[in-house]
């Protein structure tokens, strides 16, 4: 118990003084997960829009597959990315293993299905509403896609935030492909996982609190977005 209390006060001290190591870890975490979110959005939003707007054979199966992939186990994704990037793997020559880029790749693979599946639903609902009018007005496909994405922006932003939340809190994949190397690939979750076992409870606790805070901020942001959108009846 002595330990525990000490760890707590040390954790607060680290946060209060904005300890350099702590800040570096937080910064890297945010950077990796934000980039992963951006990359995923770039891939997943067009997929979601295309799936939400079109009707073709095998679409149902594709949607089921996508929904199933929302639950991809992070360690499996980590393992696959590791195999691809390891020296013996097909992309070994890129020398990306144990770099932040590898972590971005892993997180992107993890959250792309999430963003695609959720945005598919959002776009499909809105398309159901707009389709007749668009057909009557002869709206070109490109304009239709752009209009749907723009008019659904509040909902899509919450989808993106959900993806970010999942990425930043995930540990299994980044620990395999990143390796928790100090000053290089150490992010919040890997630091917590490994420093706890090494006995550095203060750092782990401080990071844990930051993670909770981020989760809180994300959820508050989602809530605020929803409320704004509803208030102005844009969603």
């Amino acid at each position: 118990m002595q330990d525990f209390g000490q760890a707590f006060s040390l954790a607060f001290h680290l946060l209060w003084t904005a300890d350099a190591d702590l800040m570096e870890i937080i910064g890297l975490s945010l950077r990796v997960s934000l980039i992963a979110m951006a990359v995923s959005c770039a891939i997943a939003l067009p997929i979601g829009a295309a799936l939400g707007m079109s009707r073709f054979r095998g679409r149902g199966a594709l949607i089921i597959l996508l929904n199933a992939m929302m639950g991809l186990p992070p360690v499996v994704v980590g393992l696959c990315v590791y195999l691809m990037l390891s020296r013996a793997g097909p992309f070994g020559w890129l020398g990306l293993l144990y770099t932040p880029t590898a972590m971005i790749i892993a997180q992107s693979i993890l959250i792309t299905p999430i963003i695609a599946a959720l945005s598919r639903q959002v776009i499909e609902d809105l398309h159901g509403e707009y389709a007749e009018q668009f057909r009557s007005m002869c709206v070109p496909v490109r304009t239709a896609i752009a209009t749907l994405l723009w008019d659904a922006r509040y909902s899509l932003l919450t989808v993106a935030l959900a993806g970010f939340g999942r990425a930043v809190a995930e540990v299994g994949a980044v620990i395999i492909v990143g390796g928790n190397i100090d000053h290089l690939t150490r992010v919040m979750t890997t630091a917590i996982a490994l420093e706890t076992s090494k006995g550095d409870l203060a750092l782990a606790l401080a990071l844990g609190m930051v993670l909770l805070l981020i989760a809180l901020v994300i959820n508050a942001g989602v809530m605020a977005l929803r409320m704004t959108a509803t208030r102005y009846s844009y969603a």
């Binding site: 509403e129 009018q133 009557s136 002869c138 008019d151 009846s233 969603a235």
Partner: peptide, 20 residues
């Protein structure tokens, strides 16, 4: 054809307005 349709307009019984 598309050309002709573009010169027509239709108002539905329950109008669909953009969320704008």
């Amino acid at each position: 054809c598309e050309e002709t349709r573009k010169r027509q307009a239709m108002v539905f019984q329950t109008p669909v307005l953009l969320r704008r």
